[in-house]
Design a protein around this nucleic acid. Structure first.
Lengths: 339, 339
DNA sequence: TTTCACATTTCAAACGTTTGAAATAATTGA
DNA sequence: TCAATTATTTCAAACGTTTGAAATGTGAAA
């Protein structure tokens, strides 16, 4: 209702109080050289007039923004949302805001987002790169002007000279496989994701290392890949279970949505053994409790922790608690959750 | 690797090019009074030196930030995430960034977030209020300095003098009930959420209006409420199905998680009729396809559209395409999805 | 009364832009 | 050649802060 009244600035307060702008500023910032009574007067007036310091001005002066940029593929993916959940809280608790930008797994959009954040003079960047990111020039820009960058959740295709925080997907898959072995399984299948995703291989390595450490022979018949598409998943499963002489008794899947497709398919074939296949997937979806044939366990990836570690590391870099060239690699362990 | 070189500013460019700062600024902003050749020289130099305009400076000068603040309870709630999905894309496409702040449904945190965003001089605020928000002073601050506010997703406890964008939960529940009636049901139960949530009543009204419009008598035996807690849900269901002479044949539930609890419970009791109860809930969860006893339909709330309408309205307010006192109420219709 | 020390306040520049007004340079016409 | 246009560039102030240096005021010691 009230019309756009003149903005309450330091100058405005100063005029009201008949003192200089710098006195007002120092009083509000509690400088020891300012008289106590003056401070009180200023602070009261500031409160009464609802003075709100202008962050743009402060940012300009201090050459920083107290904003962290976050670029990620997609907020509909619950994994990423969960990383943000942890990240946002930690940032806020430390006086930082975050600006989130979705790339939709599109390189062009990712570059645009990066440029936008660069203009905004974010104090740091946290990025989960798109599937198609091979060239990192748009990210390097930040480091070139001294703005630290943390890669997270997705592993860049080069290995050195960057800070990164990733889920320990190797360990997760190793433990899941070990769990199945401990339950007596020897014919364990691995259903991977797209081959171009590095996690597909990391998880495969976890799987195969667990087999090896238990002297279980590896058979390539027990390994298949899917691009997440439902039909594709089903044909992968058909391959894994093709040889009726040699059927897997357990399955580790790249993630739960494809595992659920697999389970559904296996149940649709009324084969007496297929119902008994014990399955584990990455994810730990909350709705598992409502499934009639739930996986025996889930690999909980702790995405909140991935997000939190990313922001923690970034803030340390921003505050020079870690040298920017002292490249860090943080692995967040998975946890096997038995249902 | 490169050390924090001197920042590339207009002044820096101007010195390199031996011309004034204002010429450089105008050249970059394509002023018609600037010579074409000069423009070319400036633009090339800017590109070579990777000049990035400092947004803090521009914001300060233009007295705006091109940032939209969003306050919402919780990013783990998929509904809110989906609103952000639509909202973020629309904002970015229009040159705005969004800063998201979670209140955790805590009033104190909501107030803190509001103050932080106020300091950041966001150009507008979109807020889904916490459960406990009764007093709106922290939000009114924005409007007092001329910053438009859109309430969304959650209905404020007052009704007038605000802009809001809400899911048309009445219509959704009406259609669901009508759908069940059309399938021949006459004993339809309604399982509501907490009574202090306004949507509980809106949905109830949709339910009861559908009954009335079809001349179906209403029985309070067929209405129960839950606070979302699982035990609470089960006891509500027990009440609804207590009278074995008069058992509902269909159920409309406040949202799917509680509906799934309800279905699970009904199935656990091996009553011959309980399996046939036809259920509908708000949500349209992607995992329904994996349930053995899926709801017959879901009420899709289109949260992306709620988010998108909120940002659209806000941008219109920011750009003075709508008078700030011309309070808008946008209802986003639900869609019944039959499984 | 001077002088000095200290407390307190103010000055002035800086952060990086934008922009209307003023200044200068180039071009045209007579 | 000179004034009058027109094209182009520069000046200078402003946006709202922060902060070291300078200025002012006060009281006490000499």
């Amino acid at each position: 209702m009230m019309k756009q009244n003149t903005p309450v600035t330091l100058k405005f307060l100063a005029e009201k109080l008949k003192m200089s702008v710098s006195t007002v500023s120092k009083a509000l910032n509690n400088y020891p050289t300012i008289n106590e009574y003056t401070k009180k007067r200023v602070q009261e007036m500031a409160k009464d007039l609802r003075f709100t310091p202008n962050k743009s001005a402060i940012n300009l002066k201090e050459r920083k923004s107290r904003i962290i940029g976050v670029i990620l593929p997609n907020l509909l993916d619950h994994y990423f949302t969960r990383t943000i959940y942890g990240l946002e809280q930690f940032a806020t608790a430390n006086g930082y805001n975050i600006i989130i930008s979705q790339s939709q797994d599109d390189l062009e959009k990712e570059i645009q987002s990066a440029n936008m954040l660069l203009r905004s003079r974010v104090d740091g960047l946290i990025i989960a790169i798109s599937k198609h990111t091979q060239d990192y020039a748009h990210v390097d820009q930040f480091e070139n002007i001294g703005t630290p960058v943390v890669y997270y959740a997705r592993n860049p295709s080069f290995n050195l000279n960057c800070h990164k925080v990733l889920g320990n997907t190797f360990q997760g898959c190793y433990e899941a496989t070990q769990f199945l072995i401990d339950r007596g399984h020897r014919k364990i299948a691995y259903l991977g994701g797209p081959k171009m995703i590095s996690f597909t291989h990391d998880r495969f390595n976890g799987y195969i290392n667990a087999l090896r450490d238990n002297d279980i022979p590896f058979s390539s018949d027990f390994v298949a890949y899917t691009d997440f598409d439902q039909e594709n998943t089903i044909s992968a499963i058909q391959n894994l279970f093709a040889d009726s002489e040699n059927v897997p008794t357990a399955l580790v899947a790249f993630k739960e949505p494809i595992l659920f497709d697999a389970i559904k398919y296996l149940r649709s074939i009324k084969h007496p053994n297929f119902d008994k296949v014990e399955c584990i997937g990455f994810g730990n979806n909350a709705f598992i409790t409502y499934l009639d044939a739930p996986p025996i366990a889930s690999i909980e990836e702790n995405p909140e922790s991935v997000g939190e570690n990313a922001i923690k590391l970034l803030l340390q870099l921003i505050n020079d608690q870690i040298e920017i060239q002292d490249y860090q690699k943080v692995m967040v362990d998975c946890k096997l959750v038995v249902h």
